[in-house]
């Protein structure tokens, strides 16, 4: 492996580690809302700092590779994608800590029935799955999987689009749940953002991987592929 390849491997593995961390942040935030566990919520808030430092580290690493190796073609595209994915992951990290913050701020536990009826839990699971699948697509450079993310994001959008109605119904049933219902609405809004970020990431994956799947033998038709 050339030194440049090693550097790129390094960026890639850092990105995957950050990804895992962000996934666990999302999972923990979910745990916090379902169990109304303020300790877990605090843990998410504390770990948010690690997400941020990951982001800075990856930014700096990419910067160095650009400066020292002048990457071109697939390497260049990978690093550009890595920079953007890095930002997207950091935003998802922010979202997780935002959700955790609601748990800390909320005076009472969230009503399980309300979370079910608004589709929040289903949405949450799907968001977590989407994020995990984009990671797998990234690791395996799997553009088919990456493309499937766009479709799956529609589920999140639907739940989000319906949320004014579903939340309104919760409030209609029991006006006492009003503050909780608003929290639920906010969480749904945030999870919708997770879907959007994942979609962006999927686009970056396609952008960088497709550079490798090259359009063969454009004009002359004589060129043969070696591998």
């Amino acid at each position: 492996m050339t030194p440049l390849e090693l550097e790129i491997e390094q960026v890639k593995s850092e990105l995957v580690s950050m990804w895992m961390l962000v996934q666990s942040q999302l999972n923990k935030a979910k745990e916090a809302i379902t169990l109304y566990d303020k300790d877990v919520a605090h843990e998410v808030l504390v770990k948010e700092k690690r997400v941020n430092s990951f982001e800075l580290k990856i930014d700096r690493d990419c910067e160095n590779v650009f400066a020292l190796y002048c990457p071109v073609a697939v390497d260049l595209r990978f690093l550009l994608a890595a920079l953007k994915i890095n930002t997207n992951l950091e935003r998802i990290g922010d979202i997780a800590s935002g959700i955790a913050q609601y748990v800390v701020d909320s005076p009472a536990n969230f009503d399980m029935a309300a979370m079910e009826s608004t589709g929040l839990l289903r949405m949450y699971d799907e968001a977590i799955n989407i994020l995990a699948d984009t990671r797998i697509a990234f690791e395996n450079e799997d553009t088919v999987l990456a493309r499937s993310i766009f479709k799956r994001d529609d589920v999140l959008d639907d739940i989000n689009d319906n949320s004014p109605n579903t939340v309104a119904e919760v409030i209609k049933k029991d006006a006492g749940l009003l503050p909780e219902a608003l929290y639920i609405l906010s969480i749904i809004r945030k999870l919708e953002r997770v879907g959007d970020q994942s979609k962006n990431i999927a686009e970056e994956i396609i952008f960088y991987v497709e550079a490798k799947i090259l359009k063969h033998a454009k004009s002359s038709g004589k060129l043969t592929e070696e591998d």
Binding site: V72, A73, L76, A211, L214, H216, A217, E225, E226, D227
Partner: peptide, 8 residues
């Protein structure tokens, strides 16, 4: 230099 068409 961004997306060459040939693997070589």
């Amino acid at each position: 230099f961004t997306a060459p068409a040939d693997q070589r």
